[in-house]
Write a protein that binds this DNA or RNA. Structure first.
Lengths: 202, 202
DNA sequence: TGGATAAATGAACACTGTTCATTTTCTTTG
DNA sequence: CAAAGAAAATGAACAGTGTTCATTTATCCA
C-alpha cells in the first residue's frame, strides 16, 4: 500500500509542478505564446514527459480553469454569512472585482480566453455554475425583501455579472489604456462605486 | 501618371484582398489558428507574397483593428442628430451592442483580443478615442440637462462602457453558455433593456 | 527587342504541438 | 545481492508555424 500511495502522491506532485510552471508562463507570455517545450524547460524535464501527465496542452489549460473557479468560490463562500442579501450582493461584486485584479491570469483564463472549450461541454462548468448560482440566489433573496421587483432573475443576474465583468475584462485586456491619464485600479474602484450606487437606485 | 496610379491602385487592391481573406479566416478559426500559409492559400498566392504587403502578421491584425473602428464610428455618427442627449445615450448603447452582435469578429479584435498591442502605442487608438469621446460628450450633455449630477464623467463613462462591453464580451467569448437554456441574443437584448432602465433611474 | 525594375516564388531557418521507439530508472522477485 | 520486469523519462521525428531571402518570373520603358 505504502509504495503505491507514494507513487500516486509523486504523480500528483509532478502534475502540480507542471501546472504551476504552466500557470506562471501563461501569465507571463499568454497561452498561445507558451510552448510545451517552454514548460518542460522550466521544470527541467523533457517535452515528452509532459504528455505522461496531460493528454494535450488544452488539458493543462483545463486544469488551471478548474483551479481558478475553486479559488473564486473560496472567496465567495464566506459571504454566505452576510445577513442582508443586498449587502451580500454588493460585497459579492467587490469580491469578484478584487479576484480579477489579484488574479488577472486566472480571471482571463476563466472568463476571457478563447481556448479549448472543446473539452468543457459537461464537467468543466460545474464549478462555474456554483458561482453563478450564488449570484442568482442572492438576487432572489433581495427580491424576497422587496428589491428588484418585476425583474427576471436570469436576465438581471446576467446584467449584473456583465457590469462587473466588463470592467474586469477591459482591465485584463489592457483596454483601460483608452483612459490615458487614469490609473487603472482607480478606474475600477470608482467603477465599482458607481455599480453599487446603481444597484441602490434600481 | 496613369501607370503609377494603376500600380498604386493594384497594390491597394492586393492589400484588401489579403485583408478580406485574413478577416474571414480570423473569424472562422481565430487569430492564432490562422496561418500566413492559410491566408496565402486562400488568395492563391505564395506565403512570401504576403510579406510584400504587410511587414508581419501583426500588421494585418492592426489594419483590421482600424477598419473595425471606422465601422463602429460609422454607425455611431448618425446618432449626432438625435436631439435629446439621454435618448442619444440609450441609442448609443443599442448601436454598440448591435455592432458587437453583427460584427463579432471585429468586436473581438477591437476590444477583447490579446494581440499585437506592441505597435499601437500612438496611432492605432485615434479612431478608438473618437468613439470614446463621443460617449463622454453625450454624458456631458446629459449632465447639462440635469442628469447624472455629481458624477465624474471619466468614471461614469467607464462604467457605462463596461456595462455594455461586459455583455458583448461574454457573448463573443461564449461565456453566455453559462445560461444553458437561454438564447444568447435574448440574453443580450434583455440585458440591454435593464441597462436602459438603469440609466433612467440613475 | 533588350535591359532595368518590380513582383512573386518557394526553399530554408528556427520555432510549434504531439508521438513513440529507445533508454534509463526503479521495484520486485529468485 | 543480482536479474527480470515494470514504470518513467527521453529526444528524435513528423507535420505544422512565422519569417527571410536568393532566385525566378513578369512587367515596363527606352
Amino acid at each position: 500500500m505504502t509504495i503505491a500511495n507514494r507513487k500516486q502522491r509523486e504523480k500528483e506532485e509532478m502534475r502540480q509542478l507542471i501546472l504551476s510552471a504552466a500557470r506562471s508562463l501563461f501569465l507571463e507570455k499568454g497561452y498561445y505564446d507558451t510552448s510545451i517545450r517552454n514548460i518542460a524547460e522550466k521544470i527541467e524535464y523533457s517535452p515528452g514527459t509532459i504528455y505522461l501527465y496531460f493528454k494535450e496542452k488544452d488539458e493543462i489549460f483545463h486544469s488551471l480553469h478548474e483551479e481558478g473557479f475553486r479559488k473564486l468560490t473560496a472567496v465567495m463562500l464566506p459571504l454566505q454569512h452576510v445577513e442582508d442579501p443586498f449587502e451580500r450582493l454588493k460585497a459579492l461584486g467587490k469580491v469578484y472585482m478584487d479576484f480579477a485584479m489579484n488574479n488577472k491570469d486566472f480571471y482571463d483564463l476563466m472568463f476571457i480566453m478563447q481556448a479549448p472549450m472543446n473539452l468543457e461541454e459537461e464537467d468543466c462548468w460545474e464549478e462555474g455554475d456554483k458561482a453563478l448560482d450564488f449570484l442568482k440566489i442572492v438576487i432572489r433573496e433581495c427580491q424576497d425583501r422587496g428589491r428588484f421587483q418585476g425583474q427576471d432573475i436570469e436576465y438581471l443576474s446576467f446584467f449584473i455579472w456583465s457590469s462587473m465583468h466588463g470592467m474586469c475584462a477591459l482591465y485584463c485586456r489592457d483596454r483601460c489604456n483608452a483612459y490615458k491619464h487614469h490609473n487603472h485600479l482607480n478606474l475600477l474602484n470608482n467603477g465599482y462605486k458607481i455599480f453599487a450606487q446603481m444597484l441602490d437606485k434600481m
